[in-house]
Design a binder for these strands. Structure first.
Lengths: 236, 236
DNA sequence: CCCTAAGGATCGTTGAACAATCCTTCAATA
DNA sequence: TATTGAAGGATTGTTCAACGATCCTTAGGG
């Protein structure tokens, strides 16, 4: 048994135990594909041929299929029986559903602000500061990622790993739609000041007003995206 | 093109289109294993040997591994590199996190009651009625499943497929812990009347009071479960 | 122009194979 | 006695090849 004096040593070692976790090939392939999908390198609708992709990545079809299972479960790919897997194409209904879920989760998470630990509130402040810095430099793609981080940090106020994972999933799915929006500036710019406004409401103790503000921003973002979809339908 | 008169026919057919979706062997194996895990036939901590299970089910190791991927992603199984997959063993931290997530989602969903479509509110009423009927007949396992359905229906008030899926996932994970509670009666009985009370508050328009009540019930259930865990630790 | 049939391509699944890793056992050592 | 080390057998990680089933394309035929 470990003596009481050992505890300190052990805790320090255990704290970094995630750094020695090995990963399977399927997981690494999934990571690779996920990154490519989220940055738009793999366009929605594209079919991922098992043979072609397996050959290109140097992995077997079986391993690749395991990776596909993960990404299908994350809703980044869709699987059609005997037809293959495709990069997910979001519909307007999907966008509506995603924003409905986001409004529920993020607005509810905002109410945890007063009791949230400092690490969680700091993450919110930092994301806002990053967005403002990026906006000042005209780095609009970075503004977009900082904005994502802001909303992820809002979810983090709830202090639940599962809520964090859920928010991450919702944001990831939405990135499938963000790519159809052309200019990242017009989409993200209004929310740089908007997020700051929410933070100030929170620090002023006006949580319910912050919730209403967040709800409104999310409704606006949804409308903007839906409008973008409608534009696609009429243009093509 | 379909004429206007066709619409009725088509919608009716399309409504049942999910019944013709084929499924892969891996999905069916996952369904089978999921059911067994949720009803407690596969005890938490049990290792699922690829060779043994594959042989027993008559599927190849590769197919079985695809099924494992799905269930690991659902957090019903855990995967340890080069050691195999095991039925998830929930920790106290897991239970706390799960209830934190449930309180956030379900309490937020309750606020959608006034604007929820009738189908959604009816599902809530029906689940409560089922629980009451089962309790009257001393069918306490059925009370438990009706209670699950009640909470699923509460999540359904939000009208989002993704929220529904998230709630289903949280409830499924919790069933891993329910099995450590001995008697389903002592665990579920208090909530038969409690759920009815929430419904009455909702129909009376006292949504915020219903939210507080739900939050309290979930806190109590969490404490009961955590106490059960502590009892396990001291007993064994 | 639509329907049909043939052909090739791809998926779904299996089984075998081999290296890498883990677990158990047992002996050796301090 | 308790810990370390090595041998072995068992299990996982991954690949490959194969075959039937399903899909897609294309070329005729009506």
């Amino acid at each position: 048994m470990a003596t009481t004096r050992d505890q300190g040593w052990l805790d320090a070692v255990v704290a970094g135990r995630d750094r020695l976790e090995r990963s399977t090939t399927a997981e690494r392939v999934a990571d690779l594909l996920r990154a490519q999908i989220l940055e738009g390198a793999l366009a929605p609708g594209l079919r991922l041929s098992e043979e072609a992709l397996g050959g290109a990545l140097g992995v077997s079809r079986n391993t690749l299929r395991e990776a596909f299972r993960l990404l299908v479960h994350e809703r980044l790919l869709v699987h059609e029986y005997s037809r293959g897997v495709f990069v997910r194409v979001l519909t307007v209904d999907d966008v509506v559903d995603l924003y409905r879920a986001r409004r529920l989760v993020e607005c509810a998470a905002l109410r945890y602000w007063p009791s949230a630990p400092e690490a969680a509130t700091t993450a919110v402040r930092r994301a806002i500061a990053e967005a403002e810095a990026a906006a000042a430099d005209d780095r609009w793609v970075d503004v977009g990622t900082a904005n994502m981080r802001f909303h992820q940090a809002i979810g983090g106020l709830a202090g639940s790993d599962r809520i964090d994972a859920a928010v991450a999933g919702l944001l990831a799915e939405l990135r499938l739609a963000f790519h159809v929006m052309g200019d990242p500036r017009t989409f993200h710019e209004p929310y740089v000041a908007g997020n700051r406004a929410i933070l100030e409401l929170l620090t002023a103790g006006e949580v319910e007003e912050a919730v209403r503000r967040m709800d409104r921003y999310l409704v606006e973002a949804e409308e903007q995206l839906v409008a973008g979809f409608a534009h696609l339908d009429t243009t093509r």
